[in-house]
């Protein structure tokens, strides 16, 4: 993956998830993370990670994938 902007967004999602693991099981953690993205990320950033998850998505951790799926559901 060579798009530095996307790389950065994925790094940010991983960081958000890592800082919210204490919220409980995977479902609860990804709820919080998706809520954070929904509340603080710009439309274009959301679209970019959703598009990536729907196409390749290879660099997304399982939790990141789940977070983005939830984000897509509410967007």
């Amino acid at each position: 993956m060579s798009d530095p902007q996307l790389t950065n967004l994925i790094k940010m999602i991983d960081q958000i998830i890592a800082n919210n693991l204490h919220h409980g099981d995977d479902d609860q953690v990804t709820d919080v993370a998706a809520g954070h993205l929904q509340k603080f990320w710009a439309r274009s950033m959301k679209q970019q990670v959703i598009a990536y998850a729907n196409s390749e998505g290879a660099d997304l951790s399982p939790l990141a994938q789940k977070t983005i799926a939830k984000l897509q559901a509410v967007s």
Binding site: P4, Q5, N8, W41, A42, R43, S44, M45, K46
Partner: peptide, 13 residues
Amino acid sequence: HEPGLRIPNMFDA
């Protein structure tokens, strides 16, 4: 109704 870009996001974009 959607948030905008923050400064570092503006730089990346």
